[in-house]
Design a protein around this nucleic acid. Structure first.
Lengths: 312, 312
DNA sequence: TTGTACGCGTTATCAA
DNA sequence: TTGATAACGCGTACAA
């Protein structure tokens, strides 16, 4: 009667409802869970705040996910894991002990063992981050990273820059490669003034303020230095800003992720729609969980936006 | 036998253990929960990232709590609430439907209705933040905010500053008042050069970069301006830095919370031991939950530390 | 359309 | 020390 109120007579239904409020009856989810095998709980991993600057990105995603879960009738449970193997071990525990209904995975990467593990066991999940290299067998949501750096590069071209450099991460990271690609393709097709060789304008380094500064310094001290820099992260951009200042040189800079730091120092940056991405993840997961889900896994590619500030 | 292995003969125990691994048996928490009424789940509220700068503080606390919960055999469940009333309604749902074992409350304030609601129902909980004004009837963990601004002020005195201003929040917020108090008492007892009237050196405003800049400008354009500023947050400090720069004036600045922004711009700041605070909260809660807990509620006051950078 | 009985997996109780 | 059994609250299948 609780779950299918229509099968009883209206009068009986009213009588039950009355009793429910009179007695203060509330469904016991543990009992329901034991009977149905579903917990209406979804799990998401929280990572140790890494850089302090970029760490906020996943936190914002988490806020969005928690907000989106409640209206859909789900609650989110947190877990931590040091690496993929440990995370998979946690899945096992969460699944058998807590009857978790689904997972939202973040930070997918090439050869990700987590997605294949979950898929092999028919566990419902959605990834925030596309299945890099893997077959598109699960639902995913991602932000169009290349479109982000494309917008940044276009903006710089529009303001008169022609030699626009790129400070990125080492090749192979998917997200990093996409961010470089957006810059590269925009610059390459920028008309007659397009640089002949893009490699002279790009440099790769691990993420960080100091590494970003060193990389930017490298670029800015070349024979024909760039007049503007597109960076793969706000950390790198912050380093680039410091390097330019130190060299007494003006250089436009655009960062990526629109973190609090970008806001604080007036750094123009590409902003990911994290709350929307999280809401989309929840939608997709709820669809799989509640509606059976479509035959072919759904996906969503969200567009980032450029937040203009002082540095570009 | 699972929960009290000692009541069976050693030989039987070995036989059971063997069967457990052979069959891949795992306890079903839903069934256990139904029988015992305990879920081994604790709940904590995640707030919408407010300022973007200060928001990271609670996120770091959350990371620490999740890390500490796992070893203690608990998992953390997230919820959101727009205000205290909505949060209390959520407690009710969480408690009756999910059999939550306990809560960790953050951002306690004067006349907090949440603590009295939980206490009235004998729900186990710990607060991160002392019971401002309320009787000490529950366990709590807090950071000695006054000691933080005291350390900042002492440092400035040691480096030769005598007129040290304070940019804080409107009175009444507990945390804000404590931060002001640490500055005030240190300056007042700084010897013969101590300023006669502290109010000439302090200004209060709502948190933010722009409001901080305005407040600092006010202070720095007075007849006898301060040469250094202690601020109640990194946002305010960032504004103060901007104001000083804009006035072409050197002014030492110390922020509070040691956020990513402080790290990025080289702002000296007071750092809260958030991971330790979270771990302590988990300890206290586990004590109440598993050990029955001490008769008088436990409390812990943690010491912050001053992170020296370029601005002071 | 309504009422009843069973079983989900666990812990606690009680008899052997 | 061991084995059997009831009960937690729900959903479901089946009988009335």
């Amino acid at each position: 009667m609780i779950n299918t109120p229509d099968i009883v007579r209206a009068e009986t239904r009213a009588r039950v409802r009355e009793a429910i409020t009179a007695l203060g009856y509330r469904v016991n989810r543990a009992a329901r869970q034991m009977r149905t095998g579903r917990s209406r709980l979804i799990a998401v991993r929280i990572e140790p705040a890494r850089d302090g600057i970029n760490g906020s990105v996943l936190d914002r995603f988490l806020h969005g996910l928690t907000d989106a879960a409640a209206p859909a009738g789900y609650r989110v449970m947190l877990y931590t894991a040091a690496d993929d193997a440990e995370e998979i071990a946690t899945y096992d525990d969460l699944l058998t002990a807590h009857d978790l209904d689904g997972f939202v995975l973040t930070s997918t990467h090439h050869g990700d063992p987590r997605t294949s593990w979950l898929a092999a066991r028919d566990v419902p999940f959605v990834t925030f981050g596309r299945p890099w290299g893997a077959p598109e067998t699960h639902a995913w949501v991602d932000v169009d990273n290349a479109a982000g750096t494309e917008a940044a590069t276009s903006r710089l071209l529009a303001t008169g820059h022609r030699r626009i450099g790129f400070v990125g991460w080492p090749a192979g990271s998917g997200v990093g490669d996409a961010r470089r690609e957006g810059w590269a393709r925009t610059l390459a097709s920028s008309g007659p003034d397009a640089p002949a060789c893009l490699d002279d304008l790009a440099v790769a380094t691990v993420d960080g303020i100091d590494t970003g500064a060193a990389a930017a310094r490298d670029l800015l001290t070349r024979p024909v230095p760039p007049t503007a820099l597109v960076c793969a992260s706000d950390s790198l951009a912050l380093g680039a800003l410091a390097a330019a200042r130190e060299l007494g040189r003006y250089c436009a800079v655009v960062g990526f992720d629109d973190t609090a730091v970008a806001q604080a120092v007036g750094l123009t940056s590409v902003s990911q729609p994290l709350a929307a991405a999280a809401a989309r993840c929840m939608d997709l997961l709820a669809e799989i969980l509640d509606g059976g889900g479509p035959a072919t896994p759904a996906r969503a590619l969200l567009q980032p936006s450029l937040v203009l500030r002082q540095t570009a």
